[in-house]
């Protein structure tokens, strides 16, 4: 019964992610109107003819802006997730497999990042130093690396005593070769699952920054920014802020369900 409920949630999440994938490719073309064109005569309209989700304060079509924003909402977090995973996997392999001082240095840095209010620091850094969207991407990546490194190191440590690694060592293979050719495929399931969870972190953080007016440029159809700009229209056209909020929640929840499930599977596999 439990397994079936889990399967159902995973299937629903997979469908949701599929829909988002289609929207990334086709989103802009599906938009019924120009996402940037305003019409002050049609300001803050509720849903109706021509505007299925109504308009914002400047009279821009909400549905078109949501669709146009899909690409940015997904591509930025994806970049953060991939960059973080790449660097964290390299560092995790180094710390877990090589051990010694490399392990000590990497783990102290991870402890350091763990005991700081990371989200607040992101807001402060992007807010004070500036640098806009690229700066937001870099800051999020840097702050996510320590936690991900710890995860990769954990699974590498669990592999260390296994016979296949000892066999590779006895054969006299170089350590980098062992790490990349033999160790990496065995920790890959965990790395992939964790990458999904990092994606969620990046998606939520980037929309949070946009919500605060940082990161994405003013006027861009970013979901977080739309949420903030249209929050004052809750009584005139509530859809203008409810729909971006729902999309952010939907994207975050579906990716978390998939990531959690893959992570469970990967951990079960590595245990047996």
């Amino acid at each position: 019964m439990r397994a079936r409920a889990g399967d159902l949630a995973a299937a629903a999440s997979l469908v949701t992610v599929g829909v988002f994938a289609v929207l990334i490719v086709a989103g802009g073309r599906l938009a019924p109107a120009d996402p940037q064109r305003g019409d002050l005569a049609a300001s803050a309209l509720g849903p109706g003819a021509g505007h299925p989700l109504g308009t914002d304060e400047l009279g821009r079509d909400i549905l078109s802006r949501l669709l146009a924003g899909t690409q940015d909402a997904i591509v930025g977090p994806l970049a953060v997730a991939l960059a973080t995973t790449l660097i964290a996997t390299a560092l995790g392999l180094l710390a877990g497999y090589r051990g010694g001082w490399a392990d000590a240095v990497v783990m102290r840095c991870a402890d350091f990042a763990h005991s700081l209010p990371v989200g607040l620091l992101t807001i402060v850094v992007v807010g004070v130093i500036g640098g806009g969207y690229p700066m937001a991407l870099v800051t999020l990546t840097v702050l996510a690396i320590p936690a991900d490194t710890r995860v990769v190191r954990g699974v590498v440590l669990a592999q260390r005593g296994l016979p296949y690694l000892e066999a590779a060592q006895v054969l006299g293979l170089r350590r980098t070769r062992i790490a990349i050719v033999h160790l990496l495929p065995n920790v890959a399931p965990t790395v992939v699952a964790n990458c999904l969870l990092t994606f969620v972190y990046a998606l939520v953080s980037l929309s949070a920054l946009s919500f605060l007016g940082l990161g994405s440029p003013a006027g861009s159809p970013d979901w977080g920014r739309m949420l903030f700009e249209n929050r004052t229209l809750l009584d005139l056209n509530p859809w203008a802020s409810i729909t971006p909020a729902l999309l952010i929640v939907l994207a975050a929840v579906s990716m978390t369900v998939l990531g959690d499930r893959l992570l469970d599977r990967a951990l079960d596999r590595s245990r047996t």
Binding site: S207, R231, L234, L246, A252, V253
Partner: peptide
Amino acid sequence: VSAGAVLAVSAPSFAVGVLLLYVFGV
């Protein structure tokens, strides 16, 4: 309870906040 927890655990506070504002406030 478990299904609710799955939904709630990854829902960002500001998005939830706007939804709460709409439903329970407005």
